[in-house]
Amino acid sequence: MLTQTTTRVLEPTDLSAALEVLGREPVNNAFVTSRVHVAGLDPWRLGGEMWGWYADGRLRSLCYAGANLVPICAGPDAVRAFAERARRAGRRCSSIVGPAEPAALLWQLLEPHWGPAREIRSHQPLMVTDRLPDDVTPDPLVRRIRKDEMEVIMPACVAMFTEEVGVSPLAGDGGLLYQARVAELVGSGRSFARLDPATGKVVFKAEIGAATPEACQIQGVWVAPEYRGQGLSVSGMAAVVRYALADVAPVVSLYVNDYNTAARSAYRHVGFTEVGAFMSVLF
């Protein structure tokens, strides 16, 4: 039996159908779902287009095409269709990010046209938790960053991003977009840190980068180099997870580079378990 398929850019009137697809995998899709809840499907507000893949007239898969290219609930046929659209449009994103299997196929199809990548992180364990272990004490000094503390948190955010991604977020536009994103997280009460009482500098920080009613995602976990090896990431993460479970969503997730054994161990100590894997292709 032949299946009629098509791919198109979704419009604001497609919102309910898009949310139905996103809701199939609330943890995997937390980042994109969070953006859609805030901005809908208008490309200007969303920061990119949402592509839809239809089979027999029904919306089956999505692909967010903004600063990141993110396949969503996408099987091989949908990924091939998204890759063809992305190839025709030319690379506009700074990374491909998503569940490892569809992201790997997407990159396989696009690499001859977009390659080479600056870096490929082919296996990034996806970890989740819905509770804190009884034997972990959250750091009482970790708190929400206030709106008047942007000058305090920004240097730590820039250091974390540069260390993690390999390029400074201040390149290009002087950091205007990145600063706006940090300000958005601070303003929404999703930026957390422990400050050194003596110097006022950030010792530990993390953000709840995406939030939906079903799940949220922690990002930007960072300990200042001079404070590493003291267990601050465990107690700090425990504090952030406690805030997240109490105020944001019933499930907390994150994904981490597989080679970062210290971070994976710290997250397991806080109660996270591995449930899948993401892949990132950085340009």
Rank of each mutant, 00 (worst) to 15 (best):
T5D: 01
L10E: 00
E11C: 02
R24I: 10
V32Q: 11
S34M: 11
D42H: 08
W44N: 10
G47Y: 02
L59F: 04
L59D: 04
S61M: 02
C63T: 08
C63F: 05
L69P: 06
I72P: 02
G75F: 02
P76L: 05
P76T: 08
A78K: 04
A81M: 01
A86L: 03
A89H: 00
R91Y: 03
G98L: 09
E101G: 12
P102W: 11
P102A: 07
A104S: 15
L105H: 08
W114F: 10
A117N: 10
R118M: 04
R121N: 09
V128A: 03
D134L: 08
P140N: 03
D148T: 04
T162K: 09
V165P: 05
G174P: 07
G175R: 05
Y178I: 08
Q179A: 14
A180K: 13
A180I: 11
A193S: 05
L195N: 00
D196N: 12
T199C: 07
K201V: 00
A210W: 02
A211T: 09
P213C: 06
E214V: 10
I218M: 00
I218Y: 00
W222E: 03
G231V: 07
S235H: 03
A239P: 01
Y243W: 10
L245I: 10
V251R: 08
L254F: 01
D258S: 14
Y259F: 10
R264Y: 04
H269V: 04
